[in-house]
Computed example of a mutant assay.
Amino acid sequence: MKSSIDRFVRLLVILTVIAASAALWWPVGAAAARIKEVAAVQGVRSNQLVGYGLVVGLDGTGDQTTQTPFTTQSIQAMLQQMGVTVPAGTNMQLRNVAAVMVTTQLPAFAQPGQPLDVTVSSLGNAKSLRGGTLIATPLKGADGQIYALAQGNVVIGGAGASAGGSKVQINQLSAGRIPQGATVERSVPTPLQQGDVIQLDLNASDFNTAREVARVINGAKGEGTAVAVDGRVVQLRMPANPAQRVAFLADIENLQFDAAAPAAKVVINARTGSVVMNQAVTLNACAVAHGNLSVTISSTPVVSQPGALSGGQTVVSEKTDISIAQQGGSLVQMAAGTRLTDVVKALNALGATPQDLLAILQAMKSAGALNAELEVI
């Protein structure tokens, strides 16, 4: 019995060693992705809507009409439509009204009567939109047609108070949302039921992805169903029966395929200094020297006071001191790295800040040591 247990333990140890070593040499398979995650049906998309309106009922935090004349003009036009005539030359000092822009997204297949969330943003110098109510505002598309109508109470996610020159504010008070504050009045036609061919647009241009998408679709729906036109477009032959097209696209969207590794790319945010790179980034062997140069200029006021009864005047001048400090940068040799962890270790060895990495990565790219595409946003 004991020998059987010993043999079982030895076998378990051998299997554990084989599994651990296989993790080192066995190639990592490509990540599986669904077609709906990398492509979209052409024409099936959302549309931006925008409108100009008024928010009323504010507690004295609205626009200062002397500095925002368009608010006064909007109020006069609204009152005139309601049969109220404001005498010419009337100085309207309204603190409870604010001019706003109303924006929302009209989703694909939206039908009349469907509610939409809207965002309300102050257009003038209103201090806060808290407690305000948006008056009926038509929302238009890029073609100038009205597709929705918005109205409701504005919800603000901040708070603030001011008195005696002091002010306390939490979050943003000049913008808010109206949940289900708009109603769709007109739908947008889609090409889903038009023609016999529909087009899939890939989110990123890649010939391998287009080929794999067409191959998987043809394998599931029959040869000739999908054709990869280029690196971004895949054309589909739709069923003749319109009632079967929804089920056809539902099946295609959930098909899985082996997505190829993305192209090596380093994204640099020049405003914040953020540097993000994907796992395909590699380095060639190179040497980098990094040092900092700082220039400090300080100015100190100096007062020259004349002597008593001298008839002179007091003169104020400035004493300026300029200092320059430069930190020595040693030459750091960076070995070739084939993994993202190697690249991170090599860059950390420089001891550079994210702002310094912007220049270092650009120089490494110019020297041919960085195998990646640089994108500055």
Rank of each mutant, 00 (worst) to 15 (best):
A30S: 10
R186F: 00
V227T: 14
S317I: 01
Q279T: 14
A20Q: 01
A142T: 14
A336K: 09
T314P: 03
I252R: 02
P301E: 07
I198G: 00
V97T: 08
R186V: 07
V343P: 12
M364Q: 08
R215M: 11
R186Q: 15
V315T: 13
I75V: 15
Q48L: 12
V213S: 08
A88S: 14
A285H: 11
T190V: 12
P191V: 08
Q67K: 13
R339D: 15
A175Q: 15
N254W: 00
T225E: 06
V120G: 05
F70M: 06
N371Q: 14
A289D: 01
M364K: 06
A150R: 08
N284L: 08
A150D: 05
V303C: 02
L331G: 02
T338Y: 02
F248M: 04
E37Y: 02
T133K: 05
S310W: 05
A126S: 14
L116Q: 07
V275I: 15
G29R: 14
A108E: 15
K2F: 15
L79H: 10
A260D: 15
T65E: 04
E223C: 01
V216E: 09
A270L: 03
A259T: 06
L129G: 03
G164D: 13
A98P: 02
G152F: 10
Q169A: 09
L202N: 09
S366W: 03
A214V: 05
S366G: 04
T300V: 14
P242D: 02
N292A: 09
L255N: 08
G312K: 05
L293Y: 12
T66I: 10
I18K: 10
R245K: 07
T16V: 15
A349E: 13
Q81K: 14
L24M: 10
G43F: 12
L331S: 07
N292F: 01
T85R: 13
V184A: 09
A31I: 08
P262V: 09
R339T: 15
E185P: 03
V155G: 01
V56E: 05
T209H: 01
P306E: 11
V343H: 06
A31S: 12
Y52A: 07
S122K: 04
L340D: 10
A285G: 13
Q305C: 00
I377H: 09
G181L: 09
G29I: 02
D206Y: 02
A250P: 01
L129F: 12
A142R: 09
A32I: 04
G291A: 12
A30I: 05
E373M: 01
R7Q: 06
L24W: 13
T338V: 06
V41T: 10
D196I: 00
T190M: 02
A260P: 13
D196M: 00
G222P: 03
V55E: 00
N269V: 06
D196C: 00
V168M: 13
L129V: 09
V184L: 06
Q105Y: 03
I170N: 12
A40E: 12
